[in-house]
Computed example of a mutant assay.
Amino acid sequence: MKKLTVCLLVLLLASSVLFAAGGAEQKSGAKEIVIGVFEPLTGENGGGGYQEVLGMRYANKVYPTVKINGETYNVKLVEADNKSDKTEAVTAAQSLISSGASVILGSYGSGVSIAAGDIFLDNKVPAIGASCTNPQVTLGNDYYYRVCFLDPFQGTVMANFAWQEGAKKAAVITQLGDDYSSGLGNFFLRAFKELGGNVVSEQQFQTNTTDFKSILTNIKAANPDVIFAPSSIATAPLIIKQARELGITAKIMAGDTWENSSIIENAGASAEGVVLSTFFDDADPATAEAAKFIEGFKKYLVENKQPDIIPAVSALGYDAYITALKAIELANSSKGSAIRDALAKVDVEGVTGRIVFNENGDANKDMAFIKVVEGGQFKFLKTVSVI
């Protein structure tokens, strides 16, 4: 009897180890493949992370299965909250590896994505970023891909927009230790100088700062035409309101993270005229997949008690999911290494446009949407492309 018990325990342990290594799980006769969701649902970037997750959840609702070797597998999403923190990001990434994920989606926030990159690489489980725009996310990591444009492009787009609007002097505000904020700020700064612009003030702040009046007072004295302040959703309304309270009239600009309705709600009338770059506009669907997504996702947002305004990061989350499915089908396998190899060859018609990857694992995106806050809403201004 004891021998039988020991054998059963050994068999159970062996099967759990096999599952933890990645691949498909057999449950009640239905095969299952796990896709991990590596996103911040709490912390400084929790609001944006939730929007990105909603896009992934909706994609899973629209496409709940995938075919491997002619067999249908149910796709199970396993979510891990990286809490907008680099240390927590490592723990969250490890938990997704332990869940048996064959591929992982995320994250909102370049810093946490970079922090988790080696975990995915070492375990040979590919990750597909949705909106993590810092070049370091994929650089030197054969197991990290992404479906968004990059910060060098985004920074250049915003510098060119400022210059074309007549700005000759700019101030830049960035967050210390935040890869997204410091990276995008520097790309804007470099591009603006190359155009002939003058950067009259460079200011930095610590994480969890709530009082920006000191650095904004320095900026006011420099009298810039524009302030470029790429930062988190939580920080944005504080910078905007305090700038206007100090009587600063310069145009305030930022990157993709600022496309969140909570910024307008919290900044109120002070948000009027704020300009940002983003990945998607539901008034101008680029593909048939986009048209289908817009109609269905607006209903899904209402079901989840969200405004029926589609965040660009939700569209990217959806695209990351369908790209993962395409790679799984192309690989004809649930093994991470095979899916990684297939990702290099995918060609997907996504919501945000065609998705094919270059040698670094970055999507060949060449278009950004410029939006402005007008009448308490984000309004489309123009599309900017580069060749």
Rank of each mutant, 00 (worst) to 15 (best):
G36C: 06
G46S: 11
V351Q: 02
F149S: 03
I219P: 00
I309K: 12
Q242C: 02
V78K: 07
M1A: 14
E289R: 03
M158T: 02
G376A: 00
I233E: 11
Q306Y: 07
L246V: 01
S270G: 01
K292T: 12
K345F: 11
K326G: 09
K3A: 14
D362Y: 11
D366Y: 13
E202F: 08
V62C: 09
K86A: 15
E202H: 12
L238M: 11
V172R: 02
G185M: 00
C148I: 04
Q136T: 12
E329P: 07
V37Y: 09
A331P: 04
F192N: 05
T138D: 11
E265H: 13
V125G: 02
D225E: 02
I355N: 06
V10C: 12
Y180E: 10
N60E: 01
N332T: 09
L301R: 02
P152S: 02
E44P: 08
N266A: 15
F369N: 07
V346A: 11
F293I: 04
D341E: 11
M1L: 14
Q204G: 09
T42L: 07
G361R: 05
K345G: 05
K124R: 12
F380L: 13
N332Y: 11
G296Y: 05
L12R: 00
D178P: 07
L11K: 09
G336D: 09
E194N: 09
S231D: 13
L96Q: 04
I387L: 15
V103Y: 03
Q175C: 14
T133L: 04
L121E: 15
V275Y: 05
E194K: 09
D225A: 05
E359D: 15
L150R: 15
I104Q: 12
A267V: 10
N141G: 11
L96W: 00
E265P: 04
V351F: 00
S214I: 14
R340W: 04
E259F: 09
S95F: 06
I309P: 00
R190E: 15
Y144Q: 15
L150S: 15
N82V: 08
V351C: 01
A171Q: 03
F149P: 00
T42K: 11
E272P: 13
A291L: 09
A283S: 15
S28D: 15
S337K: 13
I309S: 14
L12Q: 04
F161H: 14
I370N: 00
A93Q: 10
G166W: 06
N358K: 07
F188S: 00
D282G: 07
D142S: 14
I328V: 05
K335W: 09
K292Q: 10
Y180L: 03
G268E: 04
P126I: 00
D319Y: 01
S262K: 12
F228D: 01
A171K: 10
S131F: 03
A101F: 01
L184I: 06
G22M: 02
G111K: 08
A344D: 12
T323E: 09
Y300D: 06
Y73N: 04
A271W: 10
N186V: 08
A222L: 06
N123Y: 06
N260T: 05
L150W: 14
L189W: 13
M56C: 10
I173W: 05
G247F: 06
L316F: 01
P224F: 06
I248A: 01
A312P: 01
G196V: 07
I309N: 10
F293L: 02
G197C: 03
V356K: 11
L325M: 03
T174K: 08
K193H: 04
V346N: 08
